[in-house]
């Protein structure tokens, strides 16, 4: 039982991380119907910028909490700027282009950002400075840390905040209107360009927060960390129904749980044949099954019949 509980905790935390990143994908997708393939790199840059600034500040003799606050804000600001420029450079000019074109620019940007990061931060793995004292709790034989609790809380808060933003504010209303029909929204006085840009900026800010969380959980960072993370988060977003905020959250947590429980139990259930070496595909198999019966994901609204 303690093993089971531990696996649930493992899955939950991993899932919260996927969910945080997935929210960024879904934010952009919900409005423009575009997969921002470079979002994983935004998360990576968020982590690396936070590492550099926090380490620098701590070395300069500033108290850790203050250094962390400044470092995180810096990283969030930098990622917001990055998100904004990504939209301007790689996506806005292509808004009326064939649907796959922005996908390719996104891949191109992703390669560019990765290599830039490699040139700036080098090829080595980096250590994320500890921001808070890690304390360990034990419940019924399963252990977890305060960092894990913070991650889950931040993910839940981020989702709540976004829901509030989209459904309770003027900007949110403009976003929903733009998602429905940009042209008509424009006629109603919504500045579609600004709304879309703000979606990118908010998504990227979330990416930076996710980056800091990932960094302080695993305590390492690397210029290639964004790719796998982005991929998993994207899977999570689709699982939950891409474009749906609650769906992204649910998809992320579900994906984390599937991976943890899959690695933990499927091996024994299949006599060792499908062991943890198949960990990465359990999620895909579940995804395929879900999509066979619900072609728009768990929480997705039925999309129209346009591809």
């Amino acid at each position: 039982m303690d093993t089971f509980l531990q696996q649930i905790i493992n899955g939950l935390v991993q899932g919260a991380i996927y969910a945080l990143v997935a929210l960024g994908y879904t934010m952009v997708y919900g409005i423009m119907g575009l997969i921002n393939f470079a979002h994983g790199e935004v998360v990576m840059l968020g982590t690396l910028i936070a590492i550099t600034s926090i380490t620098f500040l701590i070395k300069a003799g500033i108290a850790v909490p203050l250094a962390a606050l400044i470092g995180i804000s810096l990283s969030v600001l930098a990622c917001m700027a990055l998100g904004w420029s990504l939209e301007r450079i790689a996506y806005r000019p292509l808004r009326h282009a064939p649907r796959l074109t922005p996908l390719i620019t996104a891949i191109g940007m992703s390669i560019v950002l990765q290599n830039l990061a490699m040139m700036i931060w080098g090829r080595n793995y980096m250590i994320f400075p500890p921001l808070i004292e890690k304390t360990q709790f034990e419940v019924a034989g399963a252990s977890f840390t305060n960092v894990q609790v913070i991650i889950v809380t931040v993910a839940a808060l981020a989702m709540g905040g976004l829901l509030w933003l989209v459904y309770r504010t003027r900007l949110g209303m403009a976003m929903r209107a733009t998602a429905q029909n940009p042209a008509v929204a424009g006629l109603m006085g919504v500045n579609a360009n600004r709304v879309i840009a703000s979606a990118f900026v908010i998504g990227s800010a979330l990416g930076a927060v996710a980056g800091v969380m990932v960094g302080s959980y695993y305590e390492i960072a690397h210029y290639q960390m964004g790719f796998m993370l982005g991929l998993k988060a994207f899977t999570a977003a689709v699982l939950g129904g891409i474009g749906n905020l609650a769906g992204a959250m649910a998809g992320g947590v579900l994906l984390g749980l599937i991976e943890a429980l899959g690695a933990g139990y499927i091996g024994d259930l299949t006599g060792g044949f499908l062991g943890s070496h198949y960990q990465d595909i359990f999620a895909f198999i579940v995804l395929i099954f879900v999509l066979m019966f619900r072609p728009s994901g768990l929480f997705g609204e039925k999309t129209g019949d346009r591809a």
Partner: peptide, 21 residues
């Protein structure tokens, strides 16, 4: 126990929990 991960992984808790048991 025989467990597996991959060369891009960062999270090993699931397999380690199983090993611990």
């Amino acid at each position: 126990a025989n467990e597996y991960t991959n060369d891009k992984a960062t999270d090993f808790k699931a397999i380690l929990t199983k090993i611990k048991s």
